[in-house]
Design a protein around this nucleic acid. Structure first.
Lengths: 279, 279
DNA sequence: CCCTATCAAAGGTCAGACCGAATAGCACGA
DNA sequence: TCGTGCTATTCGGTCTGACCTTTGATAGGG
């Protein structure tokens, strides 16, 4: 319960009340010749300071995963900041995926490892915010997915293979089913390959990418039965290479698969543009 | 000044006071047989609702980049939420890189496109939080950087080439200089290649990756004069291929470069481990 | 022994106040 | 006319203290 005090005798000893001293008179003498020194130093907010400090402690492992940070009112006492400020800091950490906050008795901010989710969401924001073109998304996938396939062929476990097989089956069963179902299974398969690479970075990126491509590809009605059949066959062939630890074949087939998919999407995109232009 | 009201007559009309209605009596009759219905529905926080709404508006383009959201007190009036809640919502958007908040008169939350920075920072969190091994970082780089080189060869502009050339010169000039300086220039070059690919996603990922590799490689004293010389030569040769629009050569040389770098790092790592084990 | 009613702990929200920062606007002097 | 410096105003930043809601803990009744 009160084990934190064992971990941290005083949470923010040095940063206690530096806030008053923070407002150093910039360019006090205001000499006109003294340029460039102290350029626009930006005063950090108290909540940022707290958040940075806590983040550092979390990443350093001061708080084991699953345990909770001190309660808000406890932090208030330790940092001599207001509850508002403390809450803002905790909220920042929550947005960054470092803690998850639970309400109720014995609630609090529980430490959790930042996952692929946060990467995926920030990549998603980048894509939406910057209006990244679908072509760029596909280009990026062509760049990194073959590498995933190579690593998957090297590192895959039996469990990975089971997942891939199951998805291969599902995508056939669903052949006549809804478009959304097909696309979802498709995305799952690609993500499964990334996971089979056992490289968390790559799989995190692929997860973000796949989701974005899924959303962008939806409502593009080029996925007919033939495409589904081709996709299913390509997936099986890549899976086979992964199963046989044949990295080069996996790269080759995956490259071919995502490339042809990209070309198909681009074609449909151009056709759609033409149709729109006809009006 | 008051142009927002033109854009949004009423900011959150439907979400005004749904909070009371939100506490629907879960499993009201508490029939023992009625399982699985309404499983653990989690009540969203008011600030999250506001943040989601504002985020959606921003991404949809309701607020042109550079303009500011309504003032906090204005949002309080429009949403009938407390200032605390409004501030939390704005803070969330700031953490996600969608707005930047400025103080002072005519301050406020100014809309800005989420940049590579946010991707880089969340990737950085993933790396630190999950304790991703250096080998995985290098593996990932080997996967995506050759693709960057290929695209750079295709899309590079004269400006890109100038930057690359400058960095090529700097890395030689600094040959006898500090390690940090060399590593920084090295990172800058790799990032410059990524930027030359003109694919914001790829460059964002590479930026995050390079920074992480830089931090992990620092303090590893394997960077002697020979390595610097080799690196500089490799950079020049890749740059040449990029200049000549020779994508295949760029891929080949970049692959070779990052692969040999990775091998060197791994060797040093193993050697260090052995040294540590000798104690 | 199980079930239920109640309590307490912890987060969520609110209202209002005050502070500091940055600027727009204005008056004044060179 | 052009600074130039002062001032008022409008912002965000922080603090306080109160109250509500959720949810686990716990004691009491069947």
């Amino acid at each position: 319960m009160e084990e934190y005090e064992l971990l941290m005798t005083k949470l923010l000893a040095p940063t206690n009340q530096q806030r008053t001293a923070m407002s150093i008179t910039v360019e006090a003498a205001a000499r006109p010749g003294a340029k460039s020194s102290l350029s626009r130093l930006h005063v950090p907010k108290a909540s940022d300071v707290l958040a940075d400090d806590l983040r550092e402690r979390i990443l350093r492992g001061d708080f084991p995963e699953g345990t909770s940070l001190p309660a808000e009112r406890e932090l208030v006492a330790q940092t001599s900041m207001s509850r508002t400020t403390v809450r803002e800091a905790l909220r920042i950490l929550e947005v960054q995926g470092l803690v998850s906050i639970r309400t109720g008795r014995s609630g609090g901010a529980f430490v959790c490892r930042p996952g692929k989710e946060s990467v995926a969401s920030s990549v998603g924001l980048l894509i939406r915010g910057r209006r990244v073109r679908l072509a760029d998304l596909l280009e990026t996938r062509e760049a990194i997915e073959p590498a995933c396939a190579r690593l998957a062929a090297k590192h895959r476990t039996e469990t990975d293979l089971e997942v891939l097989d199951r998805l291969n089956d599902e995508i056939v069963v669903d052949d006549g089913a809804s478009l959304a179902s097909f696309l979802q299974t498709n995305v799952d398969w690609h993500v499964a390959v990334a996971i089979a690479s056992h490289n968390e970075l790559l799989s995190g990126m692929m997860m973000a990418l796949s989701r974005a491509i899924y959303e962008a590809t939806d409502n593009q009605g080029f996925v007919d039965a033939a495409v589904r059949e081709t996709t299913a066959r390509a997936h099986r062939s890549v899976t086979k290479a992964i199963r046989e630890h044949d990295g080069e074949a996996a790269v080759r087939r995956m490259t071919r698969h995502v490339h042809s998919y990209a070309e198909a999407v681009i074609q449909v995109e151009e056709r759609t543009e033409i149709q729109l232009a006809e009006h």
